[in-house]
Nucleic acid binder design. Structure first.
Lengths: 190, 190
DNA sequence: CAGCACATGTAATTTGTTACATGATTGC
DNA sequence: GCAATCATGTAACAAATTACATGTGCTG
């Protein structure tokens, strides 16, 4: 039930198309929410019908036409009401950790391959996040003042960064652990 | 599709009932996987039918009877095959962060209430995690040797701990940020 | 000329949640 | 006596993924 609020939340900052929203969900806010376009478009239709958003059809020549969605006053009210609602808890599904859980019963090299793959992704994405934080600070988004509309985005970005760092740290530590296991196995095998 | 592998993974370490599995999913492995009993029981039935697990019916007098599930050799093989499968990525849904994202448009006190509530939970759970890590170390689960069957569980626990610490750190920082906003608002309001 | 970015949608299927259903024992 | 723990299941509903469907223009 909170996809609608995620959409309203994103639209509360800026008007966007369904396509833009989809991109947000797998980049900027991807670390705390995600959704595919096939889920987003129907929900936008619902929100429109309920009057929580409106859209303007923008005709384009060199690209497909698009619908730019804007949150309405009712939409903002609904969002505000939701904020003060007893919070559903965070959920995580991490198949990598599930694989690590059973690492004792498989060739540690298999797990290592997966860890290294994920690690490479995280290194890349980590750099992008750090860059984003610097830019946000430069833009003054970190000022804790009531007029600073960018503070919320900055705070979530900061959370993403800390989480990301912790995960990277763990990845590196894990890789080192399993490398030692592999070494020990090689020695015993000879 | 990976609930089945999560179940097989848990059963690879020890034989458990559906009820036990449910508890694991909202405590020990809860930070990287979760499922309700209504999803678990039918999946156990499927796994039984496919021969990946078997169960033994244990009759009890002072408690309801139970089915203790054990992974089969085929089950272990299926799990091993899955480990080396191209990994689905981690997904997160965090309604708290969604609320923070839009904090600029609401009374920061509302957000503060939510943050403090979550913070209290995290402090409590953090202590439990730290305790668990100490015990695991004492039991030698941290040795990176091929014979150490507990290493996988220790590694995931460590990940949980690091993630948890990062989140707590962020919660405290966030609370401080919003307190400053509230102060600034009070000053301006007078 | 192949593949990607843009852009929006629907249909089929799989996952996951909430609610319904039952029932004994133990601790407060 | 009332709530919690133990224990297993089904049914109804909501949420999410994968696949189907279409079409232009730019870039390598």
């Amino acid at each position: 039930m909170s996809l609608r609020f995620a959409l309203l939340g994103l639209l509360a900052r800026e008007s966007l198309t369904g396509y833009d929203l989809t991109k947000r969900f797998d980049s900027t806010v991807g670390f705390f929410w995600s959704a595919k376009h096939s889920q987003i478009y129907p929900e936008l239709a619902n929100l429109t019908q309920e009057g929580l958003v409106t859209y303007e059809l923008v005709t384009q020549t060199s690209k497909p036409n698009k619908k730019v969605y804007t949150i309405t006053e009712e939409g903002r009210a609904a969002l505000r009401a939701w904020i003060d609602t007893p919070g559903d808890r965070r959920t995580v599904k991490d198949p990598l950790l599930m694989r690590i859980w059973v690492v004792g019963m498989v060739d540690p090299n298999l797990a290592l391959r997966q860890l290294r793959e994920v690690s490479a992704e995280y290194e890349k994405r980590g750099a992008a996040l750090e860059q984003a934080e610097l830019e946000a600070r430069a833009a003054g988004a970190d000022r804790p003042t009531p007029d600073n509309m960018g503070l919320g985005a900055f705070m979530t970005l900061r959370c993403g960064l800390l989480q990301h760092q912790a995960y990277r740290e763990w990845l590196n530590w894990s890789i080192a652990q399993l490398e030692r296991v592999v070494e020990a196995t090689a020695k015993a095998g000879v």
